[in-house]
Design a protein around this nucleic acid. Sequence first.
RNA 1: GGAGAAGUACCCAAGCAGGUCGAAGGGGACGGUUUGCUAAACCGUUAGUAGGGGAUAACUCUAGCGCGGGUUCGAAUCCCGCCUUCUCCGCCA
Length: 430
Amino acid sequence: MLDIQRIRNNPEEVKNALQKRLFEVDFTELLSWDQKRRSIIIEADELKAKRNKVSGEIPVLMKQGTDVSQLKAEMKEIGDQIKKLDDELRDIEKKINDFLAGLPNIPAEDVVAGGKENNRVIRTFGEKPEFSFTPKNHVDLVTSLGLIDYERGVKIGGNGFWVYTGDGALLEWALLNYFIEEHTKDGYQFMLPPHILTYQCGYTAGQFPKFAEDVFKVEASEVSDRMQFILPTAETALINYHRDEILNEEDLPKKYFAYTPCYRKEAGSYRAEERGMIRGHQFNKVEMFQYTLPEQSEAALEELVNKAERLVQGLGLHHRVSKLAAQDCSASMGKTFDIEIWIPSMNDYKEVSSCSNAYDYQARRGNIRFRRKDSKKTEYVHTLNASGLATSRILPALVEQYQQEDGSVIIPEVLRKWMGGRDRLYPIKK
RNA sequence: GGAGAAGUACCCAAGCAGGUCGAAGGGGACGGUUUGCUAAACCGUUAGUAGGGGAUAACUCUAGCGCGGGUUCGAAUCCCGCCUUCUCCGCCA
């Protein structure tokens, strides 16, 4: 949610900022509603003040034996006017809110305009592995190693699902354990939130109302404020953890991480090259989340990017870090860095972590504030989220980058303690 | 899933046959007096918030007693719907 006051005072500035996202807005209607709203409030408040005053006087007059029926009739009239104005006000505030709720976040100053093509790689880690043999793709590898069962996944869950089997499940769990261990070391608090969330959660996160079609709704309920849905990312849960709260300045930053599966419809996004586990309806992710003071959020974003990057580095996998252009940042975010991992068979880098600063955008939607120790004033917190990490692209990258000529795959050092000390996975015999 | 009870400020809690109730009384917290220090005692402060007007001042108005409606000149108090919590019953991983 953007600050209406900012739009009121500098409509051109906001309009230009949103153009970096290739998002065109016209505020003339909004500003006229805003005008109208305030004039209604002035009128209604005056009437209410009068009603309060007279209603206070009526019992006194009655005690004196004065006839108040004339006054009552007048107040009745005023009451009707107030009701009419309040109805009008409600309508116009709904219009204003709906309009504001549909606006994306303003990109940060240093974020370049335009779409994907303007994303900039800011650093890379490691090298593309060179193979002295013909490398296999991850679908073949995980199948021959017996790590993933695609066919039965589709049989029991439908298109877009797979099953981790045996060592595959262990390896997946090893990754998650590794992440959990690292975040805990860094002082982040581990959270296991509900996976089914209320409409309000999606609204705060900025997924609703615009992107309500991307999530699985429970019991096919309609989109309404009563609906529930299965979370598309733990971010949606964590941003709502402190919804409608006023935190203490000295309690910030709050650093959390959560493990949840993530459920997404991904309707219409299937592409042949993304077969396997690159894009499914369900994937595992550990999500980092911070609530910070406004002046600390830039540093926090850097910390999150570094943390996510260190995890990939710990696995020894070739990857790069990109700074996204304005349009490629999701609607709630003002600045985003992606960490993308090299998938040899796709000859491409795929996102394993998205690290973003929402600034006060989500905090406004969720009414999450903090109180300054000195001035006692309340302000909106800044919120940041970063995957740390999503596994569904790591496993493919891992098996592909670490594959050997004999079809075996080397297990990264950091995962071995959860793999019974083994250093390698071998193809299973058919 | 069924039946009852309840939701009041940081916490507890009164008010609920409608009218100075924006809300008694405790506790806690904060400030002060007393004190060598602590404790105790005593005095004081303790809705915060949101939205208007105003210079983004002083000041002022409006809303707020779970949430949303309604009745009324006037509602914490009456009516309706919803949410949440607790107790009991049923069912069950």
